[in-house]
Structures are given as C-alpha cells and as structure tokens.
C-alpha cells in the first residue's frame, strides 16, 4: 500500500481526480517533474501544461491539461490545486485552437497599452497552447492503436 500515491486534483469548480496512483508527472515552473512514492515533502508552482498519472503497471490513468496552480506532496499524498484541469477527452481541439487565435490577436492589440491586461492575456495564451498540445499529442497517440 505504501508504494502508492494518493492523488487528488481539485479545481475551484470540482474535484477532478481522487485515486491511488504510482506516479504523477506535472509541469512545474522549473520544468516537468515526476513524483514517485516516498517523495520528500514538496510545494511547487505549476505552469500550464500536461499532467499525467500512471498506475503500478505503468499504464497511463489520467492525462489532462492544467493551467497553473500548486502542487503539494507530503507523505504519500499528492494534492494538486489547479486553476483549471481538463481531461484529454474533454478538450475540444477546434475550440482550443480558436481560443488561442483570439488570444493571440488580442495580445497584439493590447501589447503596448496595458500591463495587467497583457499579463492576463499571456497567461491565457499559454493555457490554450497547453490544452492544444495535450489534445494533439493524445489524438496522434490514439490513431495507430489497433482495434482490439
């Protein structure tokens, strides 16, 4: 039992994941890290990107796009406080793409004027980019899989 991590991912809207896993990979400010059981207590900042968890056989259980937040590891408990977290299946690629385009355009307009608005937009853009990346990667990965 002790070689399992209790993973809990919550966003302001809902509890996204609450299950036992054996490793979690998250995008942090300083690059991607993978948390294994018996990790030392850690608190870190998340950046927009892909988050995934694996069970003991190494097969992937949950892949999702997160857009910033915090991770706390203590004992064998991993708590992820994400601003948003979406499972790959939930991401609408077309919508993500258009949202990114919109953000990009706005960014060009706002750039010179308003610092706060600019920062918000940059964050939004990063988030959309992360969603898109995650969605594309997964979709591509799913295609060659032979039908059982």
């Amino acid at each position: 039992m002790s070689s399992q991590l209790r993973l809990k991912i919550v966003t302001p809207e809902r509890v996204v994941v609450e299950q036992a896993v054996s490793s979690v990979t998250v995008p942090t400010r300083q690059g991607q890290i993978t948390v294994l059981p018996h990790h030392i207590p850690l608190v870190s900042l998340l950046t927009p990107g892909e988050l995934s968890a694996r069970d003991e056989k190494g097969s992937e259980m949950a892949a999702m796009a997160v857009s910033g937040g915090f991770i706390e590891v203590s004992g064998n408990t991993v708590v992820i406080l994400a601003d948003t977290a979406e499972r790959v299946e939930e991401i609408d690629e077309a919508r993500a793409e258009s949202a990114r385009e919109r953000a990009k355009q706005l960014l060009a307009e706002v750039r010179s004027r308003d610092d706060v608005a600019y920062a918000t937009l940059v964050a939004k853009m990063e988030k959309e980019l992360a969603r898109l990346r995650v969605a594309r990667k997964r979709k591509a990965g799913h295609l060659p899989r032979p039908e059982a």
Partner: peptide, 16 residues
Amino acid sequence: GPRASEYLFEPSPAEV
C-alpha cells in the same frame, strides 16, 4: 501522519 520533515520549495520558499 508524522511529517516533521522540512518542506522542499521549488523554485524557492519565498517565490512559492
């Protein structure tokens, strides 16, 4: 849970 250990902060405690 017994967790007297110090936390590791990344990038740094202040920033986190």
